[in-house]
């Protein structure tokens, strides 16, 4: 096999994997804490994309996209806070029902985007400084994709720092380990849920900005990344950031490398088969949390 092609696909795998990671981090955080999955999470990516487009209408110039990142983060985080307060907090004891109710939210948001911006979507032009590519060993690595890797690394670093070093991170870890004990020591667990949930949707908003650099922002733009992101959560292991990172990168590489042999649609099938085989070997996910509780 052509080594440059292989190198290029491995790089693509990391790039796709970092998108999966940005899409899945919020899901994994909330799932670890509350055992619920937000099916409207893909629409947080979409929201981030439209916010990036809107920001670039106002702030033109080469650094518009940098301004768009915090705008999308805050916008999606606020939406997440509303969604959590209005719906998810009320359903927290019924995880499967939460899937269905948030799917309803997803339908409404997609149709709202269609009504407001049209079904074709809007284009975000990447700034000139993201055009071009570095050539390494015959493979060309586009700056836009390096930018995605950079954003994912920054988010991950920031999140790790927040969880490991801050007071709020300490509280999040406490609730993650034992919800009842944390509540008994006086931690407001519902507030922690809310903070983690909006942090997660904010990260999805960031993912939406980087997605906008790769293609048009459409009402269904989130859907193409959300199913792999769900699989990342399944594979990652409960409440583990390390597991989520590993799962996202593994699945990104599986998709990219299988595209060396088969077309995109078969790569989807291979992705699913890979996850099903993986859980035969490690049903508890890449990283298992040690716990004595029976129904984790």
């Amino acid at each position: 096999m052509d080594p440059a092609l292989l190198l290029g696909q491995i790089f693509n795998g990391f790039s796709v994997g970092s998108l999966y990671l940005l899409a899945a981090l919020g899901l994994a955080l909330s799932f670890g804490l509350m055992r619920v999955i937000n099916m409207a999470h893909g629409e947080m990516l979409m929201l981030g994309g439209y916010l990036a487009w809107g920001t670039l209408q106002v702030v033109s110039g080469p650094w518009g996209i940098i301004v768009a990142l915090p705008v999308a983060f805050i916008g999606a985080a606020i939406f997440g806070a509303i969604l959590h307060t209005a719906l998810i907090a009320r359903l927290s004891a019924r995880p499967l029902d939460t899937l269905l109710a948030t799917w309803g939210v997803s339908l409404v948001l997609q149709q709202a985007a269609r009504s407001l911006f049209g079904a074709i979507g809007v284009e975000v032009t990447a700034p000139a400084w993201l055009d071009g590519a570095v050539a390494i060993g015959g493979a060309s690595l586009p700056y836009a994709r390096l930018f995605i890797l950079g954003v994912a690394a920054l988010v991950l670093g920031g999140l790790a720092l927040l969880l490991a070093r801050s007071r709020i991170g300490l509280l999040v870890r406490a609730v993650n380990q034992d919800r009842m004990m944390a509540a008994a020591t006086g931690i407001d667990v519902n507030r922690i849920d809310l903070i983690v949930f909006s942090l997660g949707t904010g990260i999805a908003g960031l993912a939406g900005v980087v997605l906008a650099l790769l293609g048009p922002v459409t009402p269904t733009v989130g859907q193409s990344y959300i199913v792999p992101a769900f699989l990342v959560v399944v594979m990652g292991g409960l409440g583990s950031i390390t597991g989520t990172v590993a799962a996202a990168l593994i699945l990104g590489l599986v998709v990219a490398l299988s595209q060396l042999a088969v077309d995109v649609s078969l790569a989807q099938v291979i992705l699913l088969v890979f996850v099903i085989l993986f859980i035969q070997v490690r049903p508890q996910g890449v990283v298992a949390s040690r716990s004595r509780s029976l129904d984790a």
């Binding site: 719906l87 359903l91 029902d97 109710a101 309803g104 939210v105 339908l107 409404v108």
Partner: peptide, 10 residues
């Protein structure tokens, strides 16, 4: 349909 999902479940 979206409203149905949300309302019926909640």
């Amino acid at each position: 349909l979206g409203a149905l999902f949300i309302l019926v479940v909640t």
